[in-house]
Amino acid sequence: SLLKAFAVMVLGMLLGLMGVDVNSGTERYTFGIIQLTDGISFVALAMGLFGISEIIRVVSLREQSTGNVIPHGRVLLSRDDLRQSAGPVLRGTLIGSLFGLLPGGGGALATFCSYTVEKKVSANPEQFGHGAIAGVAGPESANNAAAQTSFIPLLTLGLPSNGTMALMAGAMMIHGITPGPQFITDQPTLFWSVIASMWIGNIMLLALNLPLVGVWVQLLRIPYRLLYPVIIMFCCIGIYSVASSSFDIFTAALFGLIGFALVAYDYEPAPLLMGFILGPLMEENLRRAMMMSRGRYAVFIEEPISLCLLLMALVLLAITVLPSIKTKREHIFTE
């Protein structure tokens, strides 16, 4: 739901404004709590929304490991498998590369889009859902490609395209590194380290997944009731180690409940994290632009670069909204 995504993103932007205003020194939304004068801890927010909330969800649904592990059989692809998956891999890579550049779940969209394309072009679409290798090779290639290209808007524009990239942006900001147009020139060593890590990471995935897949499957035998206390312990250690603040642990617990409530009512938590990251940056640069233009909002359409970016944003918004409006109109006219 586009409306729910916008609502959660606005909530994240408001949470990002908590603390002391840099320009006026006024406390905002702190409710007299001293620990909130520096704002909400990004680590506590992320751990609560994605870690603790997932544990609460699983425990509430009583999802437990059954202990039944199906033998995985042959791991390496045969020559016929390689022949059948070559086309889907190439198409999936192209689709994923394009979707990875888009803001919001690019990886998920690329996966579903690739699956749909492969089913459309397949000579035997009835095999999809029953082990067709094209239905696995295409979406997986699209997902991997989207994961790589989603770094482009983050490292060049400072815009995280999904929740994972928002976590990356937050991690950089914790270390005093601001992703954006100057990132490559200001941090060339880190930039090329990120590029190298993609190659090294993919090679290590091959080394870890293929020979050791049997080991990872055995992890399914561990009952979840033994895993979640360990997960919570590591979350608390990570949260406390950032600022040595027990208040952040309670903050993470609160956002764990909020994240659980969001998922229960079909609200995606990722836009909240993106709004939390981008909100303060938007406010800071908006106020800077207002000061430079002496309060004239027309400056945003008078400058060619600013006007071009605003038009691109409007086009992307229209592309996102129009299918939803079209679907509603067709539903109304059908009734």
Rank of each mutant, 00 (worst) to 15 (best):
H175E: 14
E303T: 05
L219Q: 07
F42N: 04
V117Q: 01
T189C: 01
W192D: 06
A196T: 09
L167P: 01
N202I: 00
R296F: 09
I174D: 02
L206F: 13
P181R: 12
M282S: 01
S53H: 06
C236G: 01
P139R: 05
S53V: 04
A132W: 00
L257I: 15
G105T: 08
V59D: 03
V8H: 02
L109W: 09
I239W: 03
I40A: 13
I239Y: 03
G138S: 15
A253E: 02
A318W: 04
R221H: 12
Y265V: 13
V22I: 12
I34T: 14
R329T: 11
A7S: 12
R28Y: 12
F333Y: 08
L167T: 10
G16T: 06
K120N: 11
S293T: 08
R225S: 10
M312Y: 11
P323M: 09
A134M: 07
I34Q: 13
L316M: 14
A313W: 06
P304S: 05
L278N: 00
L15P: 03
I203W: 04
G238N: 08
Y297H: 05
L286M: 14
H72C: 02
I33T: 05
L167I: 12
E268D: 14
E54I: 10
V299Y: 10
R296I: 00
L272Q: 00
Y267C: 15
A147H: 04
R225T: 13
S1C: 04
V213H: 10
A313D: 02
R62T: 06
M282I: 13
H72W: 11
S324K: 15
A264H: 12
E140Y: 01
L102Y: 05
M9S: 06
L11E: 00
A123D: 14
L309T: 08
A147N: 13
Y297E: 04
W216L: 09
S60P: 00
F255L: 05
P280S: 13
L205C: 11
L314V: 13
G67F: 08
H130A: 14
T178G: 03
L11F: 09
F50R: 10
T156S: 11
W216G: 04
E303H: 11
T189R: 08
P179G: 10
I174M: 12
D21G: 04
W192K: 00
Y115S: 07
S293P: 03
P88W: 08
A132N: 14
R329Y: 11
A132V: 02
V117D: 09
I184A: 08
A44Y: 00
S24D: 01
A110Y: 06
A264Y: 08
S1D: 15
F183N: 00
T185L: 08
P229I: 07
N143H: 13
L272F: 05
G48P: 07
V136E: 06
S65V: 00
V8I: 15
S244L: 10
L212K: 06
P125Q: 13
